[in-house]
Design a protein around this nucleic acid. Structure first.
Lengths: 194, 194
DNA sequence: GTCTATATAACGATAGAC
DNA sequence: GTCTATCGTTATATAGAC
């Protein structure tokens, strides 16, 4: 049980159980005792892998937000064409679908995540990323009204995914369908002059 | 300080402070001590008005869900026409906008609300209401794919509201604009045969 | 209605043996 | 790496005086 491979595996098992319980019962209502019990270890053992309870959820959140940051960086480096915008939406659903356990946990516990950025780091972890993402989906110099459609496209996809992902036979089809509608919605931002 | 009017007022002040702190810091991270301190009373005083901490948030949630239930009841009693569907969306934004403090608190703390329905009542308080609401927005016998558009319309409005409500000069205009897009989105459920 | 004082319980986290 | 044992803190909630 001393090989590093075993250690990584245990760490991953802790994360998996944590995601499950945090989603089911919420972050604050889930105690380290519960997580440890389900893994048949003691609380103290968890502290070998994570320095605090927050550190567990941080390790989960980190990866997800890093992907969004990468997407924003990529989008910024691209020309502002309709094709680019469609590709941004496509990559966004992909991130959502691929990390759907973390994604759901994150949105279920956004109060906890929000109050986690807490001291030293600034807050608004979600808004901080959604604002530039929306910005990439409108023409330069767009009005606030123009931002509504892409915003609703993103919010609609998130909601649609969380609502239907567990009752649909083929998640790939769901993604494709959501993306389709989102593209149509976000791209209808011309011809609104009377 | 004995008149019942004074009592109601105090109760309302407790609720107002609770909504504010629950939204700001989250339900679990907000202690009754904090709420009491901000009202310049002691913890014990709160127990004269509410029998538990959960009871405070329950009193907040109750009113909001009752309005949604009324909307579902009204929608069920109406003919399934495009006009009815548009009116359902209109009433939904109205509920969202009118009770926007509670609405935001609710979505920020959905983990807490979810784990509150807990024993004896069943869970899924949100899904329980969104499912019939979506049902009212599609033609009878619609496929799952047909439900995507109304679902995204609802989710998009919620997201758009929460994201922009605090940075817009006129919230009434925001509501109108969101509703407009949502109607267009939800009503495009014909002509998708190739 | 509001207070002081306290009961009771659980949590996150650490120390140190093995 | 995992354990036992425990520390220190804070929380919800109650009892009973005023």
């Amino acid at each position: 049980m001393n090989e590093p491979a075993r250690g990584r595996e245990t760490r991953a098992r802790i994360q998996a159980v944590a995601v499950e319980l945090f989603t089911e019962q919420g972050y604050e209502k889930t105690s380290l005792r519960e997580i440890a019990e389900r893994l048949d270890v003691t609380k103290a053992a968890l502290y070998y892998y994570f320095k605090s309870k927050e550190d567990i959820v941080a390790s989960l959140v980190e990866d997800y937000f890093a992907q969004i940051d990468d997407l924003i960086a990529w989008g910024t480096s691209q020309p502002a064409t309709p094709q680019t915008r469609a590709e941004i939406l496509r990559r966004y659903v992909a991130i959502m679908a691929e990390g759907h356990r973390a994604f759901r946990m994150l949105h279920q516990n956004q109060a906890a995540v929000h109050s986690m950025a807490g001291p030293k780091g600034r807050r608004e972890l979600f808004k901080e990323r959604l604002t530039p993402l929306i910005e990439l989906l409108v023409e330069p110099g767009a009005t606030l009204a123009d931002r509504l459609r892409p915003a609703m496209a993103l919010g609609g996809m998130s909601f649609g995914w969380m609502f239907f992902a567990d009752q649909v036979p083929d998640r790939g089809e769901l993604c494709a369908a959501l993306l389709d509608i989102a593209c149509e919605l976000a791209d209808a931002d011309r011809g609104d002059r009377p």
